[in-house]
C-alpha cells in the first residue's frame, strides 16, 4: 500500500518537473502563434488561443531571414561533408591499424575536445583575418571542421571497431580490392554511425554562436544564430516584438529538435538495452 502511494507521489512530482522543464519550449512555440495584440497585454496567454502565422510572415519578410538561412545551410553542409570524410578516414586508421604515433593521436583527439573555443577565438580571429577570410564561408568552415572533427573521429572509431575485420578479409579473399571491401562491406555497416555522428556535428555547427559572432561580423554574412540575436537586439531598442522573436527562435530550433528526436530513438534503445541486461 505504502509503496503504491509512493509511486503515485513520484509520478506526480515527475509530471510537475516535466511541465516546468518543458515550459520555456512550450512558451516559445505557443507565443509564436499569438497576435502581437495578445502578446502585448499585461496578462500572459498560456493556452493556445492564437493560430496566426503573422509573426512568421513578418519575421521572414522584414528581416534577412532567407539570407541567413542560406548562409547557415551552406556552412553546415561544407563543414559536415568535409568533417565526415576526414573523420571516417582517421577513424579507419586508428581502429584498423596499429601504427607508431597512434596512441598520441588518440590522446590529442581527446584533449583537443577540451580546448575551450572561448580561449581560442582571439587567435582564430587573427588567423582568419590574416588570410582575408573574415565574413566568408571558407573562413568559418575551416574553424568549424577543426571544432567538430575530433568528436566525430571519437564517435566513428567505435562504429568502425564494431565491424569485424574478418568480414573485410573475407571479401578480399573473394576478390575485392581493399577499397572495394571497404565500400561494399564496412561502409554500409557503419552507415548508422555516420548518420549519428553527422547529426551531432550538424547540431554543433548549426547552433554555434561564439565563433560566428567573431568571424562573421558583416550583416550580409550572418548565420541563423547571429540573425536571431540581431532581431532580438534590434527589437529590444523599442518595444520588443516578442511574437516575432519567438517565431524566429522556433525557426532556428525546429531542425535541431527534429534531429534530436531521431537520435533519441537510439538513446532510448540504449536505455532499454541496459534495463533488460540489468
Amino acid at each position: 500500500m505504502r509503496s503504491k502511494f509512493k509511486r503515485y507521489l513520484a509520478a506526480a512530482v515527475a509530471v510537475l518537473v516535466a511541465i516546468v522543464w518543458a515550459f520555456p519550449v512550450y512558451w516559445m512555440i505557443n507565443s509564436s502563434f499569438l497576435t502581437p495584440l495578445t502578446i502585448s497585454g499585461l496578462d500572459p496567454t498560456f493556452l493556445p488561443f492564437g493560430g496566426t502565422l503573422q509573426n512568421y510572415r513578418d519575421v521572414t519578410t522584414e528581416t534577412p531571414f532567407f539570407e541567413a538561412l542560406q548562409m547557415s545551410v551552406i556552412v553546415v553542409a561544407v563543414a559536415l561533408i568535409v568533417c565526415i570524410a576526414f573523420a571516417t578516414l582517421a577513424a579507419l586508421a586508428i581502429s584498423r591499424f596499429r601504427f607508431r604515433g597512434r596512441k598520441s593521436f588518440v590522446l590529442v583527439i581527446i584533449l583537443v575536445q577540451m580546448l575551450p573555443a572561448e580561449a581560442m577565438f582571439i587567435a582564430q580571429y587573427q588567423m582568419i583575418s590574416g588570410l582575408g577570410l573574415l565574413n566568408s564561408i571558407a573562413g568559418v568552415s575551416i574553424i568549424y571542421v577543426a571544432m567538430v572533427v575530433p568528436f566525430t573521429i571519437w564517435m566513428l572509431r567505435g562504429f568502425v571497431a564494431g565491424v569485424p575485420i574478418e568480414l573485410e578479409e573475407a571479401a578480399m579473399v573473394d576478390g575485392c580490392t581493399r577499397f572495394g571491401a571497404f565500400r561494399r562491406i564496412t561502409f554500409p555497416l557503419i552507415a548508422p554511425g555516420l548518420v549519428a555522428s553527422g547529426v551531432f556535428a550538424f547540431i554543433q555547427v548549426w547552433n554555434e554562436f561564439a565563433l560566428a559572432s567573431v568571424l562573421l561580423t558583416d550583416d550580409e554574412a550572418q548565420t541563423l544564430p547571429l540573425w536571431l540575436r540581431d532581431i532580438a537586439q534590434q527589437s529590444n531598442l523599442g518595444a520588443p516584438e516578442w511574437g516575432q522573436i519567438m517565431a524566429g527562435s522556433v525557426l532556428v530550433a525546429v531542425p535541431v529538435i527534429i534531429f534530436f528526436v531521431i537520435v533519441q530513438g537510439r538513446m532510448a534503445q540504449g536505455l532499454v538495452g541496459g534495463a533488460v541486461k540489468g
Partner: peptide
C-alpha cells in the same frame, strides 16, 4: 524524459531569447 530532451535540444541562442 521527453520534457528533458526538449530543453536539451534547444539551441543556445533560442534558449536565451525565450
Amino acid at each position: 524524459q521527453s520534457a528533458l530532451l526538449l530543453a536539451w535540444a534547444m539551441p543556445i541562442v533560442a534558449q536565451m531569447t525565450v
